[in-house]
Nucleic acid binder design. Sequence first.
DNA 1: GTCATAGGGTTACAATTATTCACAATTAGA
DNA 2: TCTAATTGTGAATAATTGTAACCCTATGAC
Lengths: 233, 233
Amino acid sequence: MKQVLLVEDDERLSSLICQYLTENDFIVHRLSSGENLLQHVQTSPPDILLLDVMLPGENGFSLCQKVRPYYPGPLLFMTAKNDDFDQVFGLEIGADDYIIKPVEPRVLLARINALLRRNTDSVASNNSLQRLQYGQLTIDRSTRSAHLKGEDVQLTSHEFDMLWKLAENPSVLVDRTTLYREVIGREYDGLDRSADVRISRLRKKLQDNSQHPYRIKTIWGKGFFFVADAWDD
Amino acid sequence: MKQVLLVEDDERLSSLICQYLTENDFIVHRLSSGENLLQHVQTSPPDILLLDVMLPGENGFSLCQKVRPYYPGPLLFMTAKNDDFDQVFGLEIGADDYIIKPVEPRVLLARINALLRRNTDSVASNNSLQRLQYGQLTIDRSTRSAHLKGEDVQLTSHEFDMLWKLAENPSVLVDRTTLYREVIGREYDGLDRSADVRISRLRKKLQDNSQHPYRIKTIWGKGFFFVADAWDD
DNA sequence: GTCATAGGGTTACAATTATTCACAATTAGA
DNA sequence: TCTAATTGTGAATAATTGTAACCCTATGAC
């Protein structure tokens, strides 16, 4: 659940927004002025910051400039003043969006989601090929973790490397020579069995049955391959 | 210079926008319908895409859905129709902003810049970043302090250096040699355990479980890496 | 079909590497 | 200087991985 920090002095509007966002699975923290904003942002940073422009004491623009060095996430201004100059100014000092009141809750929500989507996208887009999903099995390279039927599968480093090598190209044979060279990191001498041992341990953790494996299959005398769609029991 | 792709059938508005953006150091490409949009985006992807909603032939929403799989960058809708439902819909199908006509050129420019800033920020400037935020964990280089779940985490100087080194490139392996050379300040002799001890102390303070760590993970025989997403276990 | 054989699956245990603890050494502050 | 906090050291413990042995199964010759 994403955390929203709302700074708004109009109690009626604040509680309206709070209610609507809470209904839509956000955790909302409310401040009625910018007094403790900096401290709040530093100790429990929100996922998105909603700032009213006209506030008692320090105004939203000034707060934005103060808080920006400590808060890199999305920041959204709300204001009753429909003034192009202010809008341009707000965006230029580092806001990501600028909404003119009256705020329609559905629109606010859509804009919040658009900002959050973009923000998590950019983190995720570096790892475009970082996550594989096959039925109930998920393999995430950025965290080097695997999940099966919603449960965390505790794989060791080498087990994970082996699984990734096989799973990144489902149905494609990975022969012993390749496996040793690219995963184990040495040449295959024709006698070494450590790849087999790794496969064996992997199968066990993936709840695969070696007599009738469905995830990692063996091609006798050649190597192994990963099966993408498996019918889970 | 950034490239803008503008899809707008109103010739007067299109040339007005084109002129204003060109004056402000953009390269503008214009299309008067969505006919060749997909091809254009694939052959010369713009830095930002401006889409009119009401277009001859295929409308902007439909174009957005078609083009999104091939264009991950910022996308902005412009429309004369001031309808909340449309706005919400546009944002939900993947737009980053939605502007109601009449379009004020200065406002359009400010919004374009806000989107581009956000887009390049997250990718490019991690080396100049003073503050990292991963879920409930923030790490602030300017004050050399870290916060977890709103609480101050008391890190020693070396613990902070180690955490920063790992966290500035999440999911990237930092091997022992690098760790000793760049954080501890001496060469790794193959026996020294002080990096492990620091990691161990760090994990404890980050409330990480070394049996099943989620923040700082070990790659056996190689080194360590930092995990950005906290929702793992 | 039987059999011999080559290769794969599994296991116990050894080797390697990581984690942690108590305490020693070092450093920073008063 | 003294004191407290920080950091390193070495040893005990735990986890991971490789090795060698055993057994099993697929394959092909007969």
